[in-house]
Design a protein around this nucleic acid. Sequence first.
DNA 1: AGGTTATTTAACTAATAGGCTAAGTACAGA
DNA 2: TCTGTACTTAGCCTATTAGTTAAATAACCT
Lengths: 134, 134
Amino acid sequence: MALDPLSSTFAALADPTRRAILARLALGETSVMELAEPFDMSLPAISRHLKVLEHAGLISRSREAQWRPCRIAPVAFKQADGWLGNFRQFWDESFNRLDGLLEEMKAEEAAKAPPRTKRKVKATREKKSGRTRG
Amino acid sequence: MALDPLSSTFAALADPTRRAILARLALGETSVMELAEPFDMSLPAISRHLKVLEHAGLISRSREAQWRPCRIAPVAFKQADGWLGNFRQFWDESFNRLDGLLEEMKAEEAAKAPPRTKRKVKATREKKSGRTRG
DNA sequence: AGGTTATTTAACTAATAGGCTAAGTACAGA
DNA sequence: TCTGTACTTAGCCTATTAGTTAAATAACCT
C-alpha cells in the first residue's frame, strides 16, 4: 500500500466501486449492507474497499449495535483538492481571469515601488500555487 | 490498467514520483532528461511514468529534434477536480456559507408558499450535492 | 557512414491489488 | 444460551505495477 497520505488517497479514488461508494455516502451516513447492495460483488470485497477508503482518510466508521455506519471524512478530500488546486491555472477560466487581475494589482503596486531584480530564466521558479478564491 | 478515464487519472496521481513530475511541469514544458534528473531512478522507469501520465491525459508530448518535450494537459485535471467538487460541501467553509445562504433564500421563498411535508427519518435521503459555484 | 545524445521497448522480477470462498467475531433478541 | 444478522479476517489465485538492465530506435553532428 502507498506510503504517503496523498498517494493512498488518490489510489483509493482510482477505483470505480470505491468512487460509487463515496457518491452514495455523500447522500448521508449508512451501513455496509446498504453500501454493498448495488454491487455484484461479495461482502468481503466491499469490506475491503471500505478499509481502503478508511485507510485513505476518505471515510470514517463507528459502531452502532451490529452495524458499522460509514460517513465521508473531509480531510483527505480537502488535501487531494488542495493538491489539484496547484494546477487550477491550467484549466480554470475564472482562475486565470482572477490571476490576471491579481497580476495587474501587483503591477500597479510595483509601479509605486522600486523595480524588482530580474532573475535568471533557467532556474526561475514562479510560485503560483495557493487558492485565490474561497 | 484501469478502464475508465477517471480511474486512470486518479491512479496516475497516486504515485509521488509522478506527482513530482507534474509539479515540475507546472513550471513549464521540459524534456525527459530534465524531468528525470531529480530522481534516483533509471531513465526507462521515468519513461514509463510519463507514459502512464500521458495515458491518463495529465500530460501531452511532442517531438522536437531528439527531445520529447512534455507539458501539462488540462482536461484530466479538470475532470478529477470536477469529481472532487461533488464533495466540496464536506470541507469547504465558504462553500458551506454559500450553501447556507442559498438555504436561507429558499426558506424565505418557502415562507410565502405552503409548508413542505415531513418525511420519515430512516429512509430520508437529503440531497445536498451539486456545485453552487464555478 | 559512424558516433553521440535522447528516449523507448523488451524481458525479467518482486510486490501489491482486488476478487473469491470459508471461517471467525460482535451484537441483539428470544 | 442459542440463533440470526452484520460484518471482518484468513487463505488462495490472478493480473497489474514499478523497478531493473540490455538492446533498439530516432535524430543530430562530423
